[in-house]
């Protein structure tokens, strides 16, 4: 793997499988009474969050702590950032404090890329979601979840059909998933109203449909994206009700899925908007599992980027 995780497109098939396999091994420690490995003892991981994101931040925090890393949480609110400090100066500060890895969430697309390539810091940079660009660890945890359910928990996702529905235009989850799922051999179909698809999407390695109903009967996993209500103020769609009617996953549509298909959502959900409550709480929903798998996948990413001690030895001496 490279020194940073900025985009799911940076991961080769072998890289991606290494992360998933490592995550699988690390997941086993979650079942132990003491959920901790010493592999990153003495290493410092900074969670640099410029956007509110409780679930991603605590997922990374739990991942780092289970590997015994020292974790520093730096959130933009109530910090020097709210006093107008630039990304560069914040980065120089973190470097001076000896950060080995910086996990960054930022509203500006490309901010992790700048952090990694501008020479401000030497540590590894992990993109925890940047603007409307990418969210690679979300794609990894989604691939992990799909693999557990549909591919026997091993190998790649060749031939699996994944349908991603919603605001693709503004979705970093969709971008990262298209890259990663394609790399792993899955066939991806994006579903959205034309206003919520980016220009040039026809060149992405996936199919595109304006209708949710057409692909559902051939879908192994359907992923519903959060749709922000304020999009309708910018005329992306006329009303929440119309969106829900045309693109929401309700019980009737869920019935069109094959027996084995799973329902996913990166959260947080708008129940009643893109996903019905009965669907979210149904047996097919793996939404809570996605959260669990997120910790394992992020442990794997930090472990591999920071070059922790070999896993086998760790397991024996687990403290």
């Amino acid at each position: 793997m490279k020194a940073h995780l900025l985009s799911a497109a940076d991961l080769t098939r072998d890289d991606a499988l290494l992360v998933l396999d490592t995550a699988q091994e690390l997941a086993q420690i979650a079942d132990r009474p003491i959920k901790k490995l010493p592999t990153l003892r003495g290493r410092t991981v900074v969670n640099l969050f410029y956007e509110d994101s409780t679930r991603t931040r605590i997922s990374f925090e739990a991942a780092a702590k289970r590997l015994s890393a020292d974790v520093i949480n730096f959130s933009a609110k109530g910090s020097s950032v709210s006093k107008g400090e630039s990304l560069k100066d914040t980065a120089l500060t973190l470097e001076a404090m000896g950060a080995d890895a910086v996990v960054i969430r930022h509203s500006a697309s490309g901010a992790p890329h700048r952090l990694a390539t501008s020479g401000w810091i030497r540590g590894s940079v992990v993109n925890a979601g940047d603007g409307t660009h990418e969210h690679p660890t979300q794609a990894l945890l989604d691939a992990y979840t799909i693999r557990e359910h549909l591919a026997g928990g091993a190998g790649d996702l060749a031939g699996r059909r994944v349908t991603i529905v919603g605001d693709v235009l503004h979705s970093r989850v969709a971008r990262s998933n298209v890259h990663l799922l394609h790399t792993l051999g899955a066939q991806v179909t994006l579903v959205a109203p034309p206003t919520l698809l980016p220009v040039g999407v026809e060149q992405w390695p996936c199919d595109v449909s304006y209708s949710i109903d057409a692909p559902l009967p051939q879908t192994d996993a359907v992923m519903m994206l959060r749709v922000q209500a304020e999009r309708m103020d910018s005329a992306f769609f006329p009303s929440a009700r119309e969106y829900s009617r045309r693109y929401g996953l309700d019980a009737r549509r869920m019935a069109a899925l094959p027996e084995h298909a799973i329902v996913m959502h990166p959260g947080p959900m708008n129940r009643g908007m893109e996903i019905g409550s009965d669907v979210a709480d149904s047996e097919r929903s793996v939404i809570v599992e996605q959260v669990t798998n997120g910790v394992s996948v992020r442990m794997a990413v930090l472990y591999l980027l920071l070059g922790g001690a070999p896993l086998v030895a760790d397991e024996e001496e687990s403290a």
């Binding site: 697309s109 490309g110 603007g131 660009h133 990418e134 971008r175 980016p198 220009v199 040039g200």
Partner: peptide, 18 residues
């Protein structure tokens, strides 16, 4: 708008300038 609207703006997640 942040950059030319086209294939690159879609991939990079930057708001397009048609």
């Amino acid at each position: 708008a942040q950059m030319n609207e086209g294939v690159m703006s879609g991939v990079l997640g930057l708001k397009g300038w048609p």
